[in-house]
Design a protein around this nucleic acid. Structure first.
Length: 638
RNA sequence: GGUCAUGUAGCUCAGCCUGGUUAGAGCGAAGGUUUUGUAAACCUUAGGUCGUGGGUCCAAAUCCCACCAUGACCUCCA
């Protein structure tokens, strides 16, 4: 038997229709509304009996005593278990629980068994407001313990997130907003040929339908190019990065961090784990309890791994002495990692992970006006960053803006201005009322060839956490006020950026273009091939010269034919391949093979340097993190 | 989380349906020959708990069950 107990402000449910033949009879279809009550969601499993019903009643009594309340709603809820008992015995056990609970003198309500019900519930925010138990008959316990890897039967793994179901049931409408300010319902919008990706994106977001397709193409590339791979010894969604992938990841991270520093972000570092009972943490923790990695430390202290940098930065900002003169205050951290225990079926390659690196930049603003002004700056920042990385806002990405009706009514011009900056029609999700801590958020979404959308850059306007975390600044008139907080990631998760770049490459491939990654992210920018061993000294000399100019090059010194070495260079998607033999050494002019042009050009080394420096201008450089000689390099991927 | 599919050498895969000698190939690796001119030189050798654990059977990579991992889809309902 599985019990999920929720201490709620209110619960509402309404039987809609019978789900199974054995459903209870004579059920009123009236909506039921109960306030200040413990909702006990219960799933009866195979082997559960009246004895266990008694145990459950004891469990409920203990919980109610802790909460100092005596009102309870017993609510049959199948999703808690994958080993459900047959309906007849389940209903008998549930009725027994009800009987025992009444006998304890509680005010007991029970929702009907076997019915489809709509329901709404508002869980109180306190740490004890959610409680999960997996109850077993004593004879079964040892067997179950033995078959459970950790020997632990309950814990956050089993929790059902009420916030998530709220998210799913959120009432919203979908629109297309054009840069000229024209807003039309999605159904009325006339998609032009240039809006193909937008239409795919809209389909994905509004229909929530996922077309049947094969495995995402970036997975093959991430392995084949030696970028990243699964690590079976870890939890799903925790990846390993090989040297080439690590270099690429570090370069992107450095670039994003540098641009945020230029914008004015103060880089900080905050802990990866937090006390789930800390008063400031409740609101966040309880929002997605089912998606946390939990762990226990000394003294049975319950900790959870952060899923964003918000906590650390908010707790830090709370301790700052802030005046309106300091605002907007910009804090930045690149989390390695943020953790989200996404449902296992939602993980996919580098697209969605459980541990990911997230640039997270918060701006604490005086008021909504300053926040709007700041949001525009950050839009420019995000736009510059994502375009420079190689994901184009004019071709590759689609924008979504989501806001409340109230915000739109008061800030219509501002919203249109934002869309104008993007320059193409965007998808709008209009919320009737605010259900989250933010009143507006926008994202750039990458739509892959299979029509799936993933958010990259994003910013949000948060009007709730300033007060929730007790962050205060002294206003011009001397009053203490809470700031409006913006949550921005200019690039989105770094792993997801790599996902998008790789998916982009495979799209190039289907269009007949040789796929290639941006030159500044290539592990090897120039591959130098020695025709014979006697040319190796010259190769080494060229390699040093390029390294001095901050160009990554390596030398294929293997005992292989020139053709074979050329092929190897192509397989590794290396942009420039230089063959060094007698002719070149004599003339001082080299024939370079350019991958993206598929042809050979005669160049001097200094011309080659100039070209590469031009193509990588303004982007960070890191030295090659592999041996320069291919003969001493391990084979990471075939 | 559920359903389905997949898991065989470092990599990519064949064999499984219809159980039966020492489980195959290509790439890669090692040793040797070759000193190479723009997408794969030649020869030889090594390399496998057939995802893990149970079961059926005289016999299991092959059939059955459970678990693990990956992928796709679904996540309605007690």
């Amino acid at each position: 038997m599985r019990l999920l107990q929720l201490h709620t402000d209110f619960v509402e449910y309404c039987p809609v229709s019978k789900e199974i033949a054995q459903a209870e009879q004579d059920v009123s279809k009236e909506k039921v509304h109960l306030e200040d009550i413990v909702v006990t969601l219960v799933a009866i499993e195979n082997g559960d009996d009246e004895r266990l019903a008694k145990t459950a009643a004891d469990e409920i009594r203990t919980y109610l005593a802790k909460l100092k309340t005596n009102r309870i709603l017993i609510y049959p809820y199948a999703h808690l278990s994958s080993d459900l008992a047959p309906a007849e015995s389940a209903i008998a056990v549930i009725k027994s629980i009800e009987k025992f609970a009444r006998a304890s003198g509680f005010d007991v309500y029970r929702a009907p068994f076997g019915w489809t019900k709509s329901f709404a519930v508002q869980v109180k925010g306190h740490p004890l407001s959610e409680n999960f138990k997996h109850l077993l008959n004593s004879s079964d316990i040892s067997a179950t313990l033995a078959s459970t890897p950790t020997g632990v039967l309950d814990g956050p793994r089993e929790k059902v997130s009420v916030a998530l179901s709220e998210e799913e049931k959120l009432e919203s409408t979908w629109w297309i907003l054009e840069p000229n300010g024209k807003m039309s319902p999605v159904a009325d919008y006339d998609f032009k040929p240039s809006d193909m990706k937008l239409r795919n994106f809209v389909n994905y977001e509004t229909a929530k339908r996922r077309a049947a397709d094969e495995q995402p193409s970036h997975i093959k590339l991430m392995k084949g190019l030696g970028i990243a791979d699964y690590e079976p010894a870890s939890d799903p969604g925790n990846m390993r990065f090989y040297p080439k992938g690590k270099l690429m990841k570090s370069l992107i991270e450095q670039y994003v961090s540098r641009e945020i520093a230029r914008y004015g972000g103060m880089e900080v570092e905050t802990p990866v784990m937090y006390d789930s009972k800390h008063p400031s943490m409740e609101s966040y923790f309880n929002r997605f309890p089912a998606r946390q990695y939990g762990l226990t430390s000394d003294n049975h202290r319950q900790l959870f791994l952060r899923f964003a940098a918000c906590f650390g930065q908010f707790l830090m900002a709370k301790d700052f002495m802030l005046s309106y003169k300091h605002l907007p205050l910009r804090l930045y951290e690149l989390t390695r990692y943020s953790f989200r225990r996404e449902k296992s079926g939602e993980l996919s390659g580098l697209r969605r992970l459980r541990a990911f690196s997230m640039p997270d930049c918060h701006a604490f603003c005086m008021d909504i006006n300053q926040a709007k002004e700041e949001l525009l700056k950050r839009f420019n920042l995000s736009s510059t960053v994502i375009n420079s990385i190689g994901l184009s806002t004019s071709e590759t990405l689609e924008m979504a803006i989501r806001f409340t009706q109230e915000f739109y009514n008061e800030n219509r011009d501002f919203v249109i201005k934002l869309v104008g900056k993007f320059g193409r029609p965007v998808l709008v999700e209009l919320w009737k009322k605010r259900s989250f801590y933010f009143i507006l958020k926008w994202e750039f979404n990458f739509v892959d060839s299979t029509g799936k959308a993933s958010a990259l850059s994003t910013d949000q306007v948060d009007i709730e956490n300033g007060s929730r975390y007790g962050i205060e600044f002294v206003a011009e008139n001397g009053d203490k006020k809470n700031p409006v907080i913006l949550h921005n990631s200019p690039s989105g998760a770094i792993e997801r950026v790599i996902f998008a770049l790789l998916e982009n490459c495979s799209e190039m491939g289907t269009k007949g273009v040789k796929p290639s990654l941006p030159l500044w992210l290539a592990h090897t920018q120039v591959r130098i091939i020695a025709v014979g061993t006697r040319h190796l000294d010259k190769c080494k000399q060229i390699c040093s010269e390029l390294t001095e100019q901050k160009i990554r090059s390596d030398i294929d010194d293997r005992d292989e034919s020139v053709s074979n070495k050329i092929r190897q260079s192509e397989v590794e998607w290396i942009d420039y391949t230089l063959v060094v033999g007698d002719k070149e050494i004599e003339a001082g002019v080299f024939v370079v093979r350019k991958r993206n042009q598929g042809q050979h050009t005669k160049v001097t080394i200094s011309q080659l340097i100039d070209e590469i420096r031009l193509r990588t201008k303004g982007m960070p450089y890191l030295p090659l993190n592999l041996p320069a000689y291919l003969s001493s390099r391990p084979i990471i991927m075939a």
